[in-house]
Design a protein around this nucleic acid. Structure first.
Lengths: 116, 116
DNA sequence: CCCATCACTTACCAAAAGGTAGGTACTTGT
DNA sequence: ACAAGTACCTACCTTTTGGTAAGTGATGGG
């Protein structure tokens, strides 16, 4: 018998899936076509290898990412979105557009460090 | 001359504003009407006072929340969304709906602890 | 007179997140 | 023989995050 978590609103449930620093960006980075590990590393700016695989694993468990191993040497692995992941990516679209629209303003905001 | 940050995509900019564990939920909790501090504490399930004020301050600096102090005693303070914040809240709507739609599935997902 | 209420503030501490730097296995190119 | 490239894995360590518990100041109610 598994423990089930209860969420007080849909947003909380969504954040259980894509919360954290990297998952959104990875999800976005994968996009509609499959991507190789090294490719993702380049496209998700600033992520470390450790974080990338760690998050990818969790996302696979959560059913938003599918991992395909070609069993070749040198290794070749492709990550792609499941239908569940694709749906999630779509609802992030508006948030992404909002960010693009206000990018300048956001970039000029004071940091906590500036304040302290 | 302020240092400006550059974001490689809109999503990264958005996350600079509502990243972290609580900001999304606070933003959502404030909603279209103003809310008092204590009210927010109740509506944002599980947040501590410390986190709540800390995040509210940052959100105020970021221009998504407005704080109104009535200078009464006992103290009375109301938090509401600025137009900027309201816009942001709107783009979170789809994400919230997605979470509601898949809440059952998400609640049954294995945790990292289950796996370890 | 004392207690509760409200919106905080502060100090302290534990846990989680995340970075660095190394290593692995196997093959192809020089 | 050796370096490079691929997709990882591991240990160690620092930084960030966040929780708990206490206190503040002014006032109204019992």
């Amino acid at each position: 018998m598994k423990k089930k978590r209860a969420y007080s609103c849909g947003l909380e449930a969504s954040l259980a899936i894509i919360g954290g620093k990297w998952k959104c960006l990875i999800l976005w980075g994968i996009g509609q076509d499959a991507r190789r590990f090294g490719e993702l590393k380049r496209v998700v700016a600033g992520i470390s290898e450790k974080m990338l695989i760690q998050e990818l694993k969790e996302m696979e468990l959560d059913g938003i990412v599918k991992r395909k191993d070609f069993h070749e040497i040198p290794p070749r692995v492709e990550y792609s979105l499941t239908p569940f992941g694709t749906e999630l990516r779509e609802v992030l679209q508006p948030l992404c557009e909002w960010g693009t629209k206000h990018m300048k303003r956001i970039g000029n905001l004071p940091t906590q460090k500036d304040v302290a």
